[in-house]
Amino acid sequence: MKREVRGLTHAAVVGMLIGLSGCDQKASTPEMPPQSVQIQVMKKQSVAVHTSLPGRTDAFEIAQVRPQVTGVIEKRLFREGADVVAGQQLYQIDPSRYKAVYDTARGQLAEAQAAEVTARAKLNRYRGLVQSHAVSQQDYDDALAAEKEAQGRILNAQGQVESAQVNLGYTKMYAPISGRISRTLITVGALVTANQTDNTAIITRLDPIYVDVNLPAITLLRLKRELADGRIQRQEDGKVPVKVTLEDGSVYEHTGQMALSEVNVDTATSTVIVRAIMPNPDKLLLPGMYVHAQLDEGVDPAALVVPQDAVTRNTHGDPQVWVVKPDNTVDLRQITTGQTVGSSWIVTSGLKEGERIVVEGLQKIAPGAKVDPHEEASQPAASATSPVDQNSQKSQ
């Protein structure tokens, strides 16, 4: 009996020693250090605000060359596809018929002028005779009426001469504007008619050239609101510079400016047509080309910018960032983003200047966790010339 008690006592002592040994091991396990993360301190900075939109070029001026008189084309006096100047003769229509009409009208004018000379001389003679009663008052009145009638015939003949002269001048078809002329749509010997609907050629002015883009109405409202609130400052000269990227991705070397915007919104697309004027001295831009136009709206002098890599999305697609509190614990905060600046977002709400956000190490942190923040050595600053793409998705 005593031997069994001793065995139990020994076993209890051994169990207590093992238990105490396990407690010591638990107490000696070191705690995990705070997760090291890179942060960025929110600082207000000046950011140029741009709108990049697709558009198409349109001719500054177009003239459809059509005949004003009927006749046969005798000559073509231009080279197809060449540049022509306003007033340059393009075609010659057979003028013989119109020359004959013009000569006839001049002859009728000469006859009317001669008759007026005779009527005026007779009136002058009767003026002195009627005072001495050598001729009757009726004869004088008839002479006065004949002289006025002769003057009327002169005016009528002069009108006939001018009309015939205009038609004769129309046999020479001139370029109404300066520009590049298309291929000829008629040949020498072809009959053309006055007021025909078919063009003989088309002249297009290429320098300058229009660029028409469709600006979303919501973007126009945002722009006007930000201008009214003073968030965006206009260019000093009040103009909106426009740069163009061609369809092959190359940047057009010349800078234009916005000319106008339509006052009506297209109900089908909810857009407003904005027109820019671009210089085109090398005739590189042609009407109908697809381009991307970048409109420089102005400058946001106090923008908060966060890298796109620092922004995550919740299940609803709302943007959010990890914010480091003063006690170095992190919290997930929802924000509102606007346009993009290079590889960053402009934050319109949800963050304040001086707050710290996590830009690297997001996958290893959880809400309320303590972190070891390290500020980036060189934070990417938003360049004043960085493009802002209004087509980027805006999340609220």
Rank of each mutant, 00 (worst) to 15 (best):
210 Y>S: 09
234 R>L: 15
285 L>F: 01
193 T>R: 02
258 M>E: 10
218 I>A: 10
202 I>V: 15
295 L>W: 13
225 R>L: 10
189 G>L: 06
274 V>K: 03
247 E>W: 03
233 Q>G: 03
229 D>E: 13
263 V>T: 15
207 D>M: 05
267 T>N: 04
209 I>V: 12
196 Q>V: 07
274 V>G: 00
301 P>H: 03
270 S>R: 14
273 I>H: 07
270 S>H: 11
217 A>Y: 09
282 D>P: 11
281 P>E: 07
204 T>M: 04
282 D>W: 04
242 V>C: 08
284 L>A: 12
249 G>C: 08
288 G>K: 03
227 L>F: 09
283 K>F: 13
269 T>F: 06
190 A>Y: 02
285 L>C: 05
235 Q>W: 12
295 L>M: 15
213 V>D: 02
207 D>L: 08
246 L>W: 05
259 A>C: 09
215 L>R: 08
217 A>H: 07
278 M>T: 10
220 L>M: 14
200 T>Y: 01
249 G>A: 06
273 I>A: 11
261 S>D: 06
221 L>F: 11
275 R>V: 14
285 L>Y: 01
194 A>D: 03
292 H>P: 11
266 D>K: 02
233 Q>N: 07
239 K>Q: 15
296 D>K: 05
291 V>H: 04
260 L>G: 13
294 Q>W: 07
274 V>A: 10
214 N>W: 09
214 N>D: 15
295 L>H: 04
243 K>Y: 02
197 T>C: 01
252 Y>C: 06
297 E>Q: 11
267 T>K: 10
242 V>F: 06
213 V>F: 03
282 D>G: 10
277 I>Y: 00
298 G>H: 11
275 R>M: 12
193 T>G: 01
250 S>R: 04
231 R>Q: 12
282 D>I: 14
205 R>G: 11
201 A>F: 08
196 Q>P: 00
220 L>E: 09
225 R>I: 12
291 V>E: 03
288 G>E: 02
245 T>L: 04
212 D>R: 06
199 N>S: 09
230 G>Y: 06
289 M>P: 11
224 K>P: 13
208 P>V: 10
299 V>H: 01
189 G>K: 02
193 T>L: 03
202 I>Y: 03
263 V>K: 03
202 I>S: 04
208 P>Y: 05
270 S>M: 14
280 N>V: 08
256 G>Q: 00
253 E>H: 05
207 D>Y: 01
265 V>A: 11
295 L>E: 10
200 T>P: 00
262 E>I: 13
259 A>M: 14
206 L>V: 13
269 T>V: 13
279 P>D: 06
299 V>I: 15
260 L>H: 03
243 K>R: 06
189 G>D: 02
208 P>K: 01
295 L>R: 06
193 T>I: 05
272 V>I: 15
195 N>Q: 08
282 D>M: 10
300 D>G: 08
237 D>S: 14
265 V>G: 08
211 V>A: 04
234 R>G: 12
197 T>W: 01
257 Q>D: 13
